[in-house]
Simulated scan of single mutants.
Amino acid sequence: MTGIEAGAAGHVCRPASAAEARREVEFALHPLLCAPDSYSLRAHRAGFEDAMLVASELVGHVLHHRESSPDVLDHQENSPGCFLVCLLHSDEVTITVTDTCEEILPLCPHSPAPGGNGLAGLGWWVINKVADQVVVQALPTGGKTITVAVPLSGP
């Protein structure tokens, strides 16, 4: 992942749904849709779509676990929720989601097996497949920050 360099465009929000996370990433990555030629547009399209998928899965995961948590009665007032930061760099998009969810995610997720627990873990597996890098950091006050680097052009 590259650091925040000069010229990086970014956006910070507190999405209330996975759909809102996708819209926020689309807004942050709007310059990609204004590419001067069709080659540039095609080269970045896959990264654009992957970035929207990553944001949707990360925020959806946080909201799912907040809703199923018995100790959070009023999710909007009693929980800091999640924050999404999307940074557009010249060759990648970094998406960071910070939340209070205590669930530990596996560093190397396995492909979800059919049967058993259905599609549980599929989103985390997909994120790790489309990303160049995934970093999970525990926060000292509880919760975690997940930063995902999504390439803008093909391998």
Rank of each mutant, 00 (worst) to 15 (best):
K129L: 11
D71E: 09
E49L: 15
E49D: 15
F48Y: 15
T94C: 03
A131C: 02
P80F: 09
E49G: 11
Q133M: 02
E77P: 00
S17T: 15
D74Q: 09
N78W: 11
H44F: 14
E26F: 01
L105V: 03
R14G: 13
P70K: 02
L33P: 08
G121I: 03
L58E: 06
H61F: 12
S79T: 10
A131N: 01
D50A: 14
C86I: 00
P155N: 10
G143M: 07
G60S: 08
K144F: 10
N128S: 12
V130N: 02
I104K: 06
G7L: 04
I127D: 01
A113T: 14
S38V: 14
P80R: 14
K144P: 12
P151A: 09
C108A: 14
T96P: 04
C13A: 15
W124M: 06
S69W: 02
F83A: 15
H75F: 07
A8Q: 00
E103C: 04
N128I: 05
G60V: 08
A19R: 06
T98V: 15
L53P: 05
E57H: 06
A28H: 02
G7I: 00
P36W: 07
A138Q: 12
D99Y: 09
R66A: 11
P106K: 02
T2Y: 04
P155Y: 10
E67K: 11
E5F: 07
L33F: 06
D132A: 13
C82P: 10
H30G: 08
C108Q: 13
G47Q: 11
E20D: 12
I4W: 07
V136M: 08
A16S: 15
H11L: 15
T147I: 01
S68L: 12
L73A: 10
R23I: 06
G121Q: 02
D91K: 08
N128A: 08
L122C: 10
D91A: 12
L139C: 13
T2C: 02
V150C: 03
D74L: 10
G60P: 12
P106E: 03
A8C: 12
N117W: 09
G115D: 05
H64K: 14
I95R: 00
E67V: 10
L58D: 08
P155L: 13
V12M: 04
A51Y: 05
N128Q: 10
T100F: 09
P151W: 05
L33T: 13
L33Q: 10
K129S: 09
I95M: 01
I4T: 07
E67H: 13
H30P: 00
A46F: 12
V136L: 07
T94I: 02
C34N: 11
K129P: 02
A6P: 00
T147A: 07
A28V: 03
H11G: 09
L152D: 06
H61K: 07
G123H: 02
H65V: 05
K144N: 10
L29I: 04
S90A: 14
H44R: 15
F48R: 01
G81Y: 09
P112A: 05
L73N: 08
L152C: 07
V72A: 03
E67L: 13
L84V: 06
Q137H: 12
G47H: 11
P31M: 05
A149F: 00
L58M: 15
V12D: 06
G154V: 13
R22M: 11
S153M: 12
A19P: 00
P80C: 09
H65Y: 15
G143V: 07
L53G: 04
I127N: 02
H65D: 10
D50V: 03
T147K: 01
P114S: 05
